[in-house]
Design a protein around this nucleic acid. Sequence first.
DNA 1: TTGCGTGCAAAGGTTTTGCATGGCA
DNA 2: TGCCATGCAAAACCTTTGCACGCAA
Lengths: 133, 133
Amino acid sequence: MQYHTQQRDTILKFIENLKGKHFTVEDVRIHLAEAGFPVGIATIYRHLERLVAQGTVAKYETGAGGAACFEFTGENCTNEEHFHLKCEQCGRLLHLECSELSQIAAHLLSSHGFKLNPLRTVFHGLCADCAKK
Amino acid sequence: MQYHTQQRDTILKFIENLKGKHFTVEDVRIHLAEAGFPVGIATIYRHLERLVAQGTVAKYETGAGGAACFEFTGENCTNEEHFHLKCEQCGRLLHLECSELSQIAAHLLSSHGFKLNPLRTVFHGLCADCAKK
DNA sequence: TTGCGTGCAAAGGTTTTGCATGGCA
DNA sequence: TGCCATGCAAAACCTTTGCACGCAA
């Protein structure tokens, strides 16, 4: 059973507006605090954990030491074609929609029996901007 | 300038023998301690950091909370076709050599200007064993 | 009233850093 | 001798957990 609390609603409202963008636990905490409704970090972690388990939110672990990134995906999440690129130089996390890339999920499954989770997979490398230099 | 120390040699000898396998800082520390030549954790971190910068060792950050995985690749590292799969259920980090997959690196570069670093990229999902269940 | 949600603080684990000491060149 | 390397301990960082209290149903 799940209660409706002010904290839950406030968190949900904030991250729903970030659909298509990623955020960290700190982002949520700071925003809520600045909005005049501070919420404990543990509560934010607990809600996000639950939302991830439900599939409403995706979690990207972009490397030890740095904070994890989350992203609101919504209930009917069909973004199989949505990938993430993490630049090793500038540190940015970029979004990439590419149908060609989604073929690799099919390949991994049919040829290697591995069921790829695009919502957790992050490609590491150099972004176009940084590669120029 | 870089000095030749016993610690450096001992660490290098150990991880060279692990070529093709991955290891954590703890693995190194425990092995060296059991071998009768304990080395401080900070030293292991500092050496691995340097080796990663040199390109001799690859580092995989397999998720916050868990320890990072390293892998000795050697100087003339040509394993562009070598990828890693991390199972979300059993936690294993699997190696995968697949020429078809290496095409995605080419695609990312030509179509999106992103220079993929296979040595840092980890695919997340369910391994064949866990997917059966 | 029942029991989940909340928040604080403490604990957990990994990694980094400061500083005095020790070893290589 | 000069400088880098080492190791210990402390700190930093993100995240999880224990526990008492508060609030939703």
